[in-house]
Write a protein that binds this DNA or RNA. Structure first.
Lengths: 169, 169
DNA sequence: ATTAGATACATGCACATGCATCTATTATTT
DNA sequence: AAATAATAGATGCATGTGCATGTATCTAAT
């Protein structure tokens, strides 16, 4: 190797790992403490709640960080728990049409109280304003532009910010 | 809930997850492609290589992102692979004194060719200079200052930058 | 010195993840 | 129309992770 990473590169790599693990663990621990499912379930529920017409499973796969087999199993558990329905797709008999149930919506609203609060306490209250732009742009720069998961996720993020969950939140 | 996360907070949360998963998966995939162990193994080998006098297992636990049971098993596998020795500690018979073997050093050097290259291609070449500071400070701000793992890891990072691996790198 | 508590590490178990592969259906080629 | 390839989704298997607990040793309190 002719080049070696500089100290800022090393710091980013190290901090990315530590920050992600710490924030993630805090989220998961607090959700568990409230007897709620994991953050990944929230993301699925919220994606399906915004898709009024239902959503194909492969489309959800693109928008989520799940790989296909893992999403398949997760959806199965959510169906078993009555949070989601999974019907054969109308136009493609290979496919599955996913829809959130009323029970699923109720759970998502319940989760939002914890999940949204954690976003405030673990991120919004901690990252100083002068580093917001650098953090966001820096993180985004490590993700390929054509990344479909990013497009889906960012769309998700934008809509989350614009159309926050209604109800008692 | 009286407050709700703003769009920047949402973006950080989403991007943190996506960027971490993407970068991590790239690292793991490339290491696997080169028939090398995971990045976590590299971190352990490098920590032990810098500890000339050997290192207690609980000290390594503080410096790594492993929790205790997981580190215990990982070390066992590394011992089985001849990369690390694990002797009873001299002063505390509960403890274990870890030391890297010559074979372990050789593997770490081998891994560095891939690992270091990935830090360059996935981070250094992608994050524009104007966002370096914001990214680093932003990530650090999400980690509690008194976090021992951070102290250990940052020390690690500093030394990695200051005393880069020798040899054919 | 004895006991109670803390610490270091190991182990068992439940669950999540990544990867390869399988089946069913659709699309494409000839 | 038949054959081939591509796609949607499910399943099996190996591995990793978090958490509770177990065992041994050390420390502190009485």
């Amino acid at each position: 190797m002719d080049r070696k990473p500089n100290s800022q590169t090393t710091a980013i790599w190290v901090l990315l790992n530590i920050a992600h693990k710490r924030v993630t663990q805090t989220f998961e621990a607090e959700l568990k403490r409230a007897h709620l499912p994991s953050a990944a379930w929230y993301d699925i529920l919220w994606a399906l709640e915004r898709a009024e017409e239902g959503m194909r499973q492969n489309e959800l796969e693109r928008q989520s960080l799940f790989d296909q087999p893992n999403l398949s199993r997760t959806i199965k558990r959510m169906v078993d728990d009555g949070l989601v329905t999974q019907c054969p797709a109308a136009t493609d008999r290979r496919g599955r049409e996913l829809r959130i149930t009323e029970e699923g919506k109720a759970l998502r609203a319940q989760m939002w109280k914890v999940y949204g609060g954690l976003m405030l306490s673990e991120i919004e209250d901690k990252v100083p304003a002068e580093h917001l732009a650098g953090l966001i742009e820096g993180l985004a720069s490590m993700i390929p532009d054509q990344d479909e998961k990013l497009q889906g996720k960012l769309k998700n993020a934008r809509e989350t910010a614009i159309n926050p969950p209604k109800g008692p939140c």
